[in-house]
Design a protein around this nucleic acid. Structure first.
Lengths: 125, 125
DNA sequence: TTTGTATTTAAGCAACTGCTTAAATACAAA
DNA sequence: TTTGTATTTAAGCAGTTGCTTAAATACAAA
């Protein structure tokens, strides 16, 4: 990628430089936030996060029943969420309980608020 | 997917049914929110949204310069954002200005708040 | 009209995603 | 120990994503 851009007269060079430096300053924040958003951007995983918020903790087996998916499929989603630092595990015998990591709640909670308000809002059609 | 779940003794059948019906009620909300999140979950698109919020409107050419990517790559990201209803266009001569759609701001704005607070917070390491 | 600029679209492709089935692992009860 | 349950891991694969380059389109100025 070199010099493919337009050769326009009216580009505001100062604006472009300012934008570049803003992005550079926030580089890490973009990487970590987009990682969380792309995890939550999968419908199955979004539902898992919502359920964990509602129920506090659930095991892969419960999630499999609730979502109507195979255990390995659920387990692989949970692994991604755990690797992404969004959920954590606690073992009790041979069952593993998954729950939301508190630190990520500020990002994730607004989603649930939105889900609930979309779902239970008064119909005005 | 049929009967692959565990055959556990202590499944709380009432809890599982309650979860299922909550999900069913919010089915549409999950679909539309996960679509928006997966769009914003791409780092390039997240930056585009952030820049549009900061600058009010930008053309593909500007974004190409700022992000250091080819025009077609940018244009294809913008198309996805437009198809997803997150951005809108306004034409002026031969340049096309992209801006955020107001209706989606409640979902998208918290991202920017998070980006800024992560970036400009006081270091407490 | 011809020429040039801004943007979009299309085709090709390597890389990634999310499922499937099968096998491996962890743990508990008999 | 053997047996069974809960979970994870691995391999295979169709489908999707996000870039590239090249071509098409839209519009304005000469």
């Amino acid at each position: 990628m070199e010099g493919n851009s337009c050769i326009r007269l009216y580009a505001d060079q100062a604006q472009i430089m300012a934008c570049k430096s803003k992005l550079k300053a926030a580089e890490k924040a973009f990487a970590s936030l987009s990682a969380v958003l792309s995890l939550a951007g999968n419908e199955v995983r979004l539902k898992i996060l919502y359920l964990l918020e509602e129920e506090k903790e659930l095991c892969p087996c419960d999630l499999s029943d609730i979502l109507g998916m195979t255990i390995p499929a659920i387990s692989q989603h949970l692994k991604k969420l755990k690797d992404g630092g969004i959920v954590q595990t606690q073992k009790d015998g041979q069952t593993v309980f998954y729950s939301l990591v508190k630190e990520l709640l500020p990002i994730v909670k607004p989603f649930f608020t939105h889900i609930n308000s979309e779902t239970f809002k008064t119909e005005v059609t």
